[in-house]
Amino acid sequence: MITRRLFCSALASLGLLAATASQAQERFVTVSSTTSTEQSGLFSHLLPIFEKASGIKLRVVALGTGQALDMARRGDADVVFVHDKAAEEKFIAEGYGVKRQEVMYNDFIVIGPKADPAKALGRDILEGLRRIEATKAPFVSRGDKSGTHAAELRYWKAAGVDLDKAKGPWYRDTGSGMGPALNTAASMNAYILADRGTWLSFKNRGDLGIIVEGDTKLFNQYGVILVNPAKHPHVKQADGQKFIDWVVSDAGQKAIADYKIGGEQLFFPNAKR
């Protein structure tokens, strides 16, 4: 049957075409990073600048810090770019990372309803959290082992609030990324700890506004680590290191400082050399 043969070969070539297209080899480094860097748009800003300087493409997979580190532990990334110092140091100690270098910081802010039922506006972070807990005002937690989640838990602890006991309907553990958690907070008119970058680029704000900011304790440090080739031999050591060297160089640091939304700078380079 001519028609049948035609049909089958058409099907096969269609499949082949669809499957093989764009498997062209290009030079790239896989970076596991956090949703804050992706959703704030920082990486979209850095990618072309770095590619132009080095000819290397960056493939950024954005996850929570915990997941991003786990992904690197499995050998699925060349470089990690995250913000949870304690977890990063553990990662290095386990031998998965070569060396941690600080790159930049931004800051956490507490977002909440503009009406501010907990009267937390303008307080320092610890007092702010204590008031939220005391009034049982709704609070949304990332609950996803991300850097922001880890920071949130540290702040509760420092504020002297025992979450295990204090948890109730007011504390919503959403297990989601920064953006989805902000969406939840906006729809519930709840307080939430967020990173400034994501907040600035976030559009669905509802009645939320910044409640607590500027406290030095809210400082949020980002680090960059090359995944240890001794653990995962396929890691692109040379190109990965090139990216790390670039991002802590004057050019990289300037590119970070240049990224602004609505005239406001999101990340503050502070690499030590």
Binding site: M178, G179, T198
Partner: peptide
């Protein structure tokens, strides 16, 4: 999913 995360509904 990404644009939803960014709140750009």
């Amino acid at each position: 999913a990404l644009e939803t995360s960014k709140g750009d509904l």
